[in-house]
């Protein structure tokens, strides 16, 4: 396959034809189409780590679920949902309930409602044996925010919602 830089005088149709005929041009065109369409399965523009904040004012939120003693529980093992996935799902619920994905901007009651709805979904998807192995009495949904603002580093954790874990009924003694 031979390809040459279009000769002068510059002609737009000739340049467009040369671009289109070049495999890399075709590849770039498909890439632009993906960017325009965005994240619509099976297509994607792969926006991971694209929206980096400015170093003067940047933050990152993390989700964790703890027991009543504030000890983090392994989310993937207990609920089949990782921390990053869980946070996105919680944000999706928050968006529906409070109209915002930012938990800091949501009114406390709506934030709690979204958190409780999220914990209820986790409870539905739980792995019974693993939950029993950890024997929690309470699930606490928390968001940890690590931020750098104008050179000041901060690390805060906010409790969003709690859920009392239904305890298994004690087995009746056999007569």
């Amino acid at each position: 396959m031979t390809w040459e830089v279009p000769t002068r005088p510059f002609s737009f149709p000739a340049a467009a034809k040369a671009f289109w005929r070049h495999p890399a041009g075709l590849c770039a065109t498909l890439a632009v189409v993906l960017v325009v369409i965005g994240d619509k399965y099976p297509l994607s523009n792969f926006p991971m780590y694209s929206n980096l904040g400015k170093i003067e004012d940047t933050s990152a939120d993390l989700m964790l679920v703890t027991n009543e003693a504030d000890r983090p529980l392994p989310m993937s093992k207990l609920f089949n949902v990782g921390s990053a996935q869980g946070k996105k799902r919680f944000e999706s619920i928050l968006q529906k309930v409070a109209g915002t994905k930012e938990y800091e901007d949501a009114p406390p009651d709506k934030r709690r409602a979204a958190g409780e709805a999220f914990l209820a979904k986790l409870w539905e998807a739980r792995d019974g044996d693993d939950v029993e192995a950890f024997s929690p009495r309470e699930f606490r949904l928390k968001i940890r925010t690590v931020a750098m603002r104008h050179g000041v580093f901060s690390d805060t954790t906010t409790e969003i919602a709690t859920m009392t874990v239904p305890q298994p009924q004690p087995k009746k003694p056999t007569p």
């Binding site: 939120d61 993390l62 989700m63 983090p72 392994p74 093992k77 921390s83 990053a84 931020a147």
Partner: peptide, 22 residues
């Protein structure tokens, strides 16, 4: 803006920890 990737690295590592309990 790459220096703000420092927080993203922390976030990814802690997220993995909260997911796996390690």
């Amino acid at each position: 803006r790459v220096p703000s990737m420092a927080l993203q690295v922390m976030k990814a590592v802690w997220s993995a920890s909260y997911s796996k309990g390690e």
